[in-house]
């Protein structure tokens, strides 16, 4: 399955947020989307997932979703979005119930995704008892449970401390290596972008336009060992963004 963004433009009232953004998400590929804050990254992701409609342009799907995918376009949110009144397994079962998966079938899926995210021992814990990293792993487990074709991740690691972030990046790479998924990975963190992205879409400050699309031709699993090369890439990206980020930072917020 492939997602194509065809000349997306968007405005809220009189703020132009996105201008003429076109790129695609191919099967089994992670695309990092970076850009200064307020440039429309979250808005773009909401459009890819069908939660919002662009003022101009289209988001297209080509090809069928993989067999057995319950929710082809699945989000992972920055603030985890776990229901505090459900336990870890209850939060996973939430997204299965409406598909008629209950009882033994549900238990099987839940056990599988919790094992993959190393949460098996925390099945019965409440979200408030979990650390930020564990909460995000629950959200990842929940997303895996519906067997998504494309994961839409909006700064999934931004609420976590840097050590937890490293651990979770390793987990994501491990999950991807075992069963490749496609993903749009929005972040403002360049290290995450180069660690996880097969391609990196660089947006300008608001209104967000594509400044550049950088392909990184290095297998995800090899990246931790080749940090030096990635660091060079990251510095290049930072040079490209620096002035925009500084300008975006000085902008007054009208929201």
């Amino acid at each position: 399955m492939r997602i194509i963004l065809d000349r997306i433009s968007h405005s809220y009232a009189d703020t132009e947020v996105l201008r003429d953004v076109s790129f695609d998400l191919r099967a089994g590929e992670i695309v990092s989307i970076i850009g200064p804050s307020g440039c429309g990254k979250s808005t773009l992701l909401r459009m890819i997932g069908g939660l919002e409609q662009p003022t101009a342009g289209r988001v297209l799907i080509s090809g069928a979703a993989p067999e057995g995918s319950l929710n082809p376009l699945t989000y992972i949110f920055q603030d985890f979005a776990l229901l505090p009144w459900r336990t870890v397994q209850g939060n996973v079962s939430l997204v299965l119930e409406d598909h008629g998966i209950r009882g033994a079938a549900a238990r099987e899926v839940i056990a599988d995704v919790l094992a993959r995210t190393k949460l098996s021992d925390f099945r019965h814990a409440w979200p408030r008892q979990l650390s930020g990293g564990m909460k995000q792993r629950v959200a990842i487990a929940r997303a895996l449970a519906v067997r998504p074709a494309v994961m839409l991740m909006d700064e999934p690691l931004s609420a976590l401390d840097s050590q937890t972030r490293e651990l979770l990046m390793d987990d994501l790479v491990e999950l991807w290596t075992r069963t490749p998924f496609s993903a749009a990975y929005v972040t403002h963190n360049l290290a995450e972008a180069v660690r996880l992205g097969h391609r990196i879409v660089v947006l300008s400050r608001r209104p967000g336009r594509i400044r550049e699309v950088v392909a990184i031709d290095m297998p995800l699993a090899e990246r931790p060992a080749r940090m030096a090369e990635l660091a060079t890439l990251q510095r290049g990206l930072w040079e490209m963004m620096r002035d925009e980020a500084a300008a975006a930072d000085r902008e007054l917020t009208h929201a």
Binding site: G49, T74, Y75, L94, V95, D98
Partner: peptide
């Protein structure tokens, strides 16, 4: 955010 999460997983309105 929780409601948006529910929508994004395709939950029914009643759910």
């Amino acid at each position: 955010g929780l409601i948006r999460m529910g929508q994004s997983f395709g939950l029914k309105w009643t759910s």
